[in-house]
């Protein structure tokens, strides 16, 4: 009995993956998803909530991102930093060995304030990287995700210079600017991002600011929330709970 049910469900999931394969076929033609697509860009405005008090620096997000998106070795769409802050508050000791893809060594000084900070593209609403792209190869999608058109990017790297957060890199094989897509291929079919899926503590959660039932509204209301480098006025949409002022 159980086996038949399992087979049935298998069929369903195979179907799910098949739509994924159909989408893969689109990669060649470059066609936008057809009219049967139930995803409406106008209904969403994506961002992320990060809870510093929940991050354990395991590096699961970095590994998951790397596997999901084939991130080239030595480059990072997401990474985790370890802050060790003494009373010389303006000059914290920061490290992120290999972007924390293997987590962190246990050598944190127990006598100073220390914590982990996951970083990723802030999917800024007023994105300085999009502003400087000379040809329209990088853009904010109508649902609020900063993306790179891989078939249109010149590889001039102006956007990499313009990002205040160091979230972009030059893809060593594709010779284009590359970055976090907020797992656009996942979130547009109802899945969460790979990093959020793999986060064991719920320190990072995808959010949709246009969804009135999304926990993000409660998160923003009940917490002391901060974004990175607010002085840059980028309209960053990665919201940090309990972020220390020493973080840059």
């Amino acid at each position: 009995m159980e086996i038949t049910r399992r087979q049935l469900l298998t069929r369903c999931t195979q179907l799910l993956v098949l739509t994924g394969t159909a989408a893969a076929a689109l990669e060649k033609t470059g066609q936008a998803p057809g009219p049967d697509d139930t995803y409406h860009m106008a209904d969403h405005w994506w961002g992320m909530m990060i809870d510093i008090e929940k991050c354990i620096g395991c590096g699961n997000c970095v590994r998951a991102c790397s596997k999901e998106n084939n991130v080239p070795e030595g480059y990072f769409r997401t990474w985790v930093e370890r802050y060790q802050v003494t009373e010389d508050w303006e000059h914290p000791k920061v490290d992120s060995p290999d972007g924390a893809i293997h987590g962190f060594p246990a050598n944190t000084d127990p006598n100073v304030k220390s914590f982990f900070v996951p970083k990723l593209c802030n999917h800024c609403a007023d994105s300085p990287c999009v502003q400087v792209c000379p040809v329209g190869a990088t853009f904010v999608s109508p649902d609020g995700v900063v993306l790179v058109d891989p078939d249109y990017c010149l590889g001039c790297r102006y956007c990499i210079q313009a990002c205040p957060y160091g979230c972009r890199y030059f893809h060593p094989e594709k010779h284009i600017a590359d970055k976090c897509t907020l797992c656009y291929h996942r979130i547009t079919q109802g899945l969460t991002t790979a990093c959020c899926e793999a986060c064991p503590t719920g320190a990072r959660r995808l959010c949709d600011l246009k969804d009135p039932n999304d926990p993000v509204h409660e998160f923003l209301r009940n917490n002391m929330v901060h974004v990175l480098k607010p002085q840059m006025a980028t309209g960053a949409k990665v919201y940090y709970n309990n972020l220390d002022g020493s973080v840059r």
Binding site: T13, V17, G20, T21, A23, A24, A25, L26, E27, G30, Q31, A32, P33, M41, A64, K67, E68, N69, G136, A137, T138, F139, V140, S141, P142, L147, D149, P150, D151, Y152, T181, Y184, H185, R186, T188, Q189, L191, T192, A194, E197, A198
Partner: peptide, 22 residues
Amino acid sequence: YGHFRPEALGVIRAHPVAFAGQ
């Protein structure tokens, strides 16, 4: 939809999924 090729959205969405999801 803005200063970009709309086809790019399809190209990016066509990336295969690795994590099947909970």
